[in-house]
Amino acid sequence: MTPFTLVNWPCRAVGCGNDHSEMALTFDRGRTIRLLVIPALFDEANKLRRQTINVMRRLDLAGVDTFAPDLPGCNESAASLPQQTLAIWRDATADASRHFKATHTLTVRASAILAPDGLPGWAWAPTGGRQALRGMIRARTIAAKEAGRPEKTEDIQTLGRSEGVELAGWRIGATMFRDLETANPADHLIEIPQSDLGGPGLWLRAEPDEDASQAESLAAILSIALELNP
């Protein structure tokens, strides 16, 4: 098994400057099939990180190179999260795709809204930006009610659209908030519904978890599809 490598890649997305780089976790042995794995967004990024990398490990064994780039403002990024917009993130994934010479992409949940145009691939349990916001807003209203200072969904949405808002610990700027409200999964991707993986979505859990048999299933589905569509 190849150990993964953490590498820098030049991210030239608008607003990131001319000398900006981000990190990516990669399994790169210079093979023909090169899969850009766009990680899940916001709270689901944490919950699905381990499972996503486990899928990449299995794809490595199956002969597929994989690349999981950090988005600007996330993880160790030097960019500021509240200044990010969907346009910047889409530019960034397109940059990463070019840099790593990706032949295909796999999106995870709401990252299906970031798939680069023209890059064929698969969307694992895709969901839209509105749904990603809905879960985090709901968590905030429940926590607020529990703390004895109730907040209304509409008020959080109004604040999000005008000034930006912190949801599940993620500071989302106003432009990003408005972008997310109308962002749908890219329609050129082939959907892999969670029900095909034989178990419940790990994003439902309170803490990050892993499931070896689901990772096997997803890697097998992708390996077969990639062999049929190299």
Partner: peptide, 12 residues
């Protein structure tokens, strides 16, 4: 296991 985020997921 049922924090506010998990309850949000449960309701959805």
């Amino acid at each position: 296991e049922l924090d506010s985020m998990a309850v949000a997921g449960l309701l959805t």
